[in-house]
């Protein structure tokens, strides 16, 4: 279950981040960012498991992937902005 979302501006940083996470052995999914997580229109999101979140954030930072926002998906499918 992927319940934590890192939003990125476009598909390219998303792909770079995805590759970095997969190389580190973390499962993730690259997808179009849900509208609720994107303030500037079209964007992409890297979805990871909540347990992997801190490590994922560190990996993305190290890879130079600029994260626009961090979101937690609630059980009802809505999102809340989150901080580590």
């Amino acid at each position: 279950m992927y319940d934590c979302y890192f939003t990125v501006r476009s598909v390219t940083p998303g792909q770079k981040g995805r590759d970095a996470l997969l190389r580190a052995g973390l499962r993730c999914r690259l997808l179009r960012a849900p509208a609720a997580t994107s303030t500037q229109g079209c964007a992409y999101a890297l979805a990871v498991r909540q347990a992997d979140w801190p490590q994922a954030a560190e990996i993305l930072n190290r890879a130079g992937v600029r994260m626009e926002g961090r979101w937690l998906r609630r059980v009802d499918g809505t999102f809340e902005r989150a901080t580590l």
Binding site: R9, V11, G41
Partner: peptide
């Protein structure tokens, strides 16, 4: 269009977009 930040009317400031 770049498929990113569609609401902004200026071009993205990051590469490659």
């Amino acid at each position: 269009g770049t498929g990113s930040r569609s609401l902004a009317q200026t071009m993205p400031d990051e590469l490659p977009d």
